[in-house]
Design a protein around this nucleic acid. Structure first.
Lengths: 190, 190
DNA sequence: CGCCTTGGCTAATGGTGTTAGCTACAAGCT
DNA sequence: AGCTTGTAGCTAACACCATTAGCCAAGGCG
């Protein structure tokens, strides 16, 4: 029996891909093992169990989403940055619904949990977007939460087939970005 | 062995309550049976299995959310209606996270699935809210999707402990409602 | 070349969801 | 009332899953 040469990262990535394909809820140790050409108990040499594996997928997803947002916001500002960040997040959720579900369903388990910083990177990029609007100090946190809410809400509704297909979802998303942009600009110097 | 006198509705309600308490993901046939003082296989006399039971919980949740929104919007209009609907939805999600998760995770399985109409009632109430703003015909669908997105996003993020606790979440929600209200009013007659 | 860490295995356990088939309850008829 | 009958809830059984214990050989390192 030749060795498969697995480690925690490979197992996590296989699990993440599988979750994207079949949905996080249907993720199972046996399916991950099957995909890796290995018997189920072998996974426990690299990963602590299904709950722990799901947590690792969450960290992976948070990191990747953070990367995407950082890249999207890089070099642009204002409404352009808002649109870029929004589209990047939406695209990620569409491409990786399983990772995103794991990410949003997980909470940091302690002060040294890598999930905390990973999630923080997303917030950092969104804060950078908002910085371009010159909001009052007191509005910042509320605007950030509003921004997270719209983007998260739209992306998850779309990923869950929550919108009827007959009207263009892309157009709605552009409209939404414009709506938020206008609202933020109105609050710019008030 | 005296009979327990169950039916599909009682089983569904017990499942919904359980889902609210322990989370939809942890809902199981055995726990529902235990709560009803019955052995697990007995449930199959009333319900088709866990998937079907979850779907019933989704229909129940959609119906209840529809009721809450209808009541909230009743007799008010404009910004008042928006605020009432928003708070009603947010409160429902906080009180019944399991039902809401089932509702948002389910799709109608066919043309005669009661989930379709049940979900439609929520949309009807939100459309009524928007009607108070006198939007252009073309903006209606986009505004509706925006509204669903913010409310759904905020509620699910809050339910998932997605917001840091140190800043007031209630204040952020009021800020969000005001943000949406201002944006919609700006588009009123344009 | 041989040690020894360790990755993957088989076997076994406890917990799920689900089906089949029995039994006795309770409603309905005469 | 008593008898019949549909059926609610039961036990037994099976398949599948996550998880643990213990074995055994692969392959890096001396």
């Amino acid at each position: 029996m030749p060795r498969a040469g697995l480690d925690a990262a490979t197992v996590t990535e296989a699990a993440a891909d599988l979750a994207d394909e079949i949905g996080l809820a249907r993720l199972s140790m046996s399916l991950v093992a099957e995909r890796l050409g290995v018997k189920t108990p072998s996974l426990y040499k690299h990963v602590d169990g299904l709950a722990s594996l799901t947590h690792r997928v969450a960290v992976l997803g948070a990191t990747e989403v953070g990367d995407r947002l950082r890249d999207a916001v890089q070099g642009v500002s204002g409404g352009e940055a808002l649109a870029a960040a929004a589209q990047a997040l939406r695209l990620f959720v569409k491409e990786h619904p399983g990772r995103y579900a794991a990410t949003t369903g997980a909470r940091p388990a302690g002060p040294d949990d890598p999930l905390g910083p990973a999630l923080g990177r997303t917030l950092t990029s969104l804060e950078a977007v908002l910085r371009g609007y010159g909001l009052a100090e007191a509005d910042r946190i509320h605007a950030l939460r509003m921004l997270r809410s719209v983007l998260h809400g739209f992306a998850t509704l779309e990923a869950g087939d929550g919108f009827q297909i007959d009207t263009d979802v892309d157009a709605s998303f552009l409209w939404l970005i414009d709506f938020v942009d206008l609202g933020l600009r109105a609050r710019a110097s008030s």
